[in-house]
Write a protein that binds this DNA or RNA. Structure first.
Lengths: 225, 225
DNA sequence: TGTACATCAGTGAACGCGCGTTCACTGATGTAC
DNA sequence: TGTACATCAGTGAACGCGCGTTCACTGATGTAC
């Protein structure tokens, strides 16, 4: 039934083509879905909620997605699938371990502050998968983890220190720590001070002997409180 | 049926008193609720599911609980409210840091294996609270955390070493790490090997200088894989 | 101890309501000539 | 460029169905005498 013309298709008039408009609608729906699902959960949010949030009707949802489940999948893929969270490359490579830990922790905390929705979705989806084993991972966990693991290994080799445990396990642990602290912080902000993640990182990496030199960089942790 | 004699109330006949029978029904419902909510989530599970699992009818639920929400609250209070997870007192006080870390990790992993339901409920509830701020914490997080924090402080003082950060922050971090690893392990068991939590603990506590002596207990971590 | 009545935990059916999904329709966009 | 028809993204109403909640009822337990 659908024509589904090849790639470009010549267009003379201005304004949006049908295809472009549809893509725009789809994106509106996905954005709305992110907000609504983060606030109410996959099971708790209705497609009416999503459509209202997008300023559209439920029919628009079914015109763009086959079912509620497919909307969820598409959302997760778009929001969690890319290695956008794979920020370790952004960290200055030549700083001390303590400085790098602090930088990483800072970036993480910023991300958490600005992308609360994303974390809620991520955790919700992990729960969902814990309950429905065998489901496809739309978030590309393994790919994201392995990319970071490789980056860390390369850094360690280049800078001449040893990671405190195999890179994949380390990355898994760091993800888990971030997730756990994020969850606790979202529930009760004052339980998880801004710098806690950084201090934990400092302890974990603090054990790293810089191979040659005996520069024991203990990040001190301003432990007032 | 079961006798289960109580303490008080003069009763001549055998069998259950009305009150005892009701308490028993309530408990059946709570057990069923734990299973069903862990499997389907609070929003995804119906009271019919719970009643069926308990071998009763929905009416029995409403005879014992005012609403679905109250059933959930009662369940959380019973399952997560007591400091049953406060196991650090069970750890041999005089072992080395590395041994204690390994013990703690082992106990945690056992708990996780046997109480999968409990962790799913806990995480689900944290998500719930992240979305509905200002809700009462039926799980007594602060009390449980502070109890463990005090225990650790006392241990540190008695054994003569310093904790790597203030006890409350440390406990918060340990809870978060446990939660994060638990979640990841429930989603994908092979990502989180049995001993990963122990190795992380080892790193975190490995920095602890035994005050007087220079016994740097690095827990080695059998890092095959 | 036995009898007559009161209580109430749990039953089973019914209630609306909101949900995911379907569908006939519409009007703007695209195509053919 | 203009006209006639085709397409299809999004509308709005309708559909059953399952949900949380309510309620009249029942029969075993408890109480009074």
């Amino acid at each position: 039934v659908t024509a589904m013309m090849g790639s470009v298709s010549p267009r003379q008039k201005a304004a949006l083509s049908r295809e472009e408009k549809k893509a725009q609608t789809r994106q509106k729906l996905l954005d709305a879905a992110a907000t609504v699902f983060a606030h109410k959960g996959f099971a708790g949010a209705s497609l009416d909620d999503v459509a209202d949030e997008a300023g559209l009707t439920k029919g628009a949802v079914y015109s763009n997605f086959a079912s509620k489940e497919e909307l969820i999948s598409a959302l997760l893929e778009q929001r969690l699938g890319q290695p956008s969270l794979a920020f370790p490359k952004l960290i200055s490579p030549h700083a001390t371990q303590a400085e790098q830990a602090e930088q990483a922790a800072h970036m993480f905390m910023n991300l958490l502050a600005n992308e609360r929705e994303t974390y809620l979705l991520d955790i919700e989806f992990m729960l969902y998968r814990a309950r429905n084993p065998g489901m496809h991972d739309s978030t590309n966990y393994v790919a994201r983890r392995d990319e970071i693991a490789r980056t860390m290994e390369a850094r360690a080799a280049a800078e001449g220190f040893e990671l405190p445990m195999p890179a994949k396990d380390l990355t898994t642990a760091l993800f888990a720590i971030g997730m756990g602290l994020a969850l606790e912080r979202m529930v009760n902000e004052e339980h998880v001070p801004e710098d806690l993640f950084g201090r934990v990182l400092g302890l974990i990496f603090g054990n790293v002997q810089p191979a040659g030199k005996d520069k024991r960089s203990q990040p001190t942790g301003k432990d007032k409180r």
